[in-house]
């Protein structure tokens, strides 16, 4: 049996108001405070739906003691993440969160409230720029990558991490929104989906063989610079893989295989070609 306070939120709000260390009243601007939605915490035990029954806490506070703490949330809480999350998942283990169990974030003891804010009008993760700061709090290398010369427009707030990743679901690799990497990329780059008459094998298999989607100091988020990028996999007879040195970047020995678009001065169709004569991805 659980022992609730005598008056619910009216008991809590006597102490916990906007002037306290953790201002709480903005929750009444959110869905959690709805009293008409039967799934909302305020339709039943109000604050205690999430923070646990508070009779003992109320009594100890009245006695001037602080020995009966409520269930608190977030990174700084001393309640284990799994225990915190059990409360949230009591209502939210649905939709995109069916794969939470066994997910990397669950196994790394990430609490829901480490990322989400409940007592604010708009949770920061719903703002593209604020969301990435939450993610970068742990994924520091990705933050650095997002500022590289060629990167998706996260730093402009035009994209957010959740455009590609679902932080709640483990079922796909790298917590991707779609079944695999290429399906995720095709969401915005459908022109590269094909299928083409002449496929470029690594393109059809995995975009990240050539690209780093988080950012690169090379153009088009390429991991390496052409012609070396291409020469990692190509050394064909009739079109030999020549050593293009710094001599070929200028002066009398300058080379079209090095300057301009390098290999793609001719082989532009690296993502595949539907031209009947496009076998060498140059049409």
């Amino acid at each position: 049996a659980e022992d609730f306070t005598r008056k619910g939120a009216d008991s809590c709000l006597k102490c916990h108001d906007e002037e306290s260390d953790f201002p709480v009243l903005s929750i009444f601007k959110t869905k959690h405070a709805s009293q008409v939605d039967p799934e909302s915490p305020f339709a039943s035990a109000q604050c205690e739906s999430c923070h646990g029954a508070g009779k003992d806490h109320e009594r100890s506070q009245k006695k001037g003691k602080d020995d009966k703490p409520m269930l608190t949330f977030g990174k700084t809480s001393n309640i284990p993440a799994s225990q915190q999350n059990k409360v949230c998942l009591g209502c939210h283990q649905n939709h995109g969160r069916t794969g939470w169990t066994g997910s990397v974030h669950e196994e790394e003891d990430v609490a829901c409230a480490s990322c989400h804010q409940v007592h604010v009008e708009r949770d920061r993760v719903f703002n593209a720029q604020a969301q990435q700061q939450v993610c970068f709090g742990c994924h520091a290398t990705t933050r650095a990558e997002s500022h590289r010369a060629s990167a998706h427009p996260l730093r402009f707030g035009q994209m957010s991490c959740s455009d590609c990743h679902n932080p709640h679901d483990s079922n796909n690799d790298s917590l991707l929104n779609r079944s695999n990497i290429n399906d995720t990329c095709y969401t915005c780059h459908a022109e590269k989906r094909g299928p083409f008459l002449w496929e470029h094998a690594p393109v059809a298999e995995d975009c990240t063989i050539c690209h780093n989607p988080h950012g690169s100091n090379h153009q088009a988020m390429l991991k390496q610079r052409p012609p070396l990028l291409c020469q990692q996999c190509h050394s064909p007879s009739g079109h030999p893989s020549t050593a293009y040195t710094s001599e070929n970047a200028s002066g009398n020995f300058q080379s079209r295989f090095v300057l301009g678009r390098s290999c793609s001065n001719c082989h532009s169709q690296v993502h595949g070609s539907n031209h009947p004569s496009g076998a060498t991805i140059s049409r």
Binding site: A1, K7, G8, A9, D10, L13, F42, A45
Partner: peptide, 23 residues
């Protein structure tokens, strides 16, 4: 206890009413 508690009697008198438009 939870079984005995009638939450409908919790009036939420101190709960602020933010009904209406803000922005």
């Amino acid at each position: 206890s939870a079984n005995d508690t009638d939450f409908s009697k919790w009036k939420c008198k101190l709960c602020p009413d933010y009904s209406g438009w803000t922005g």
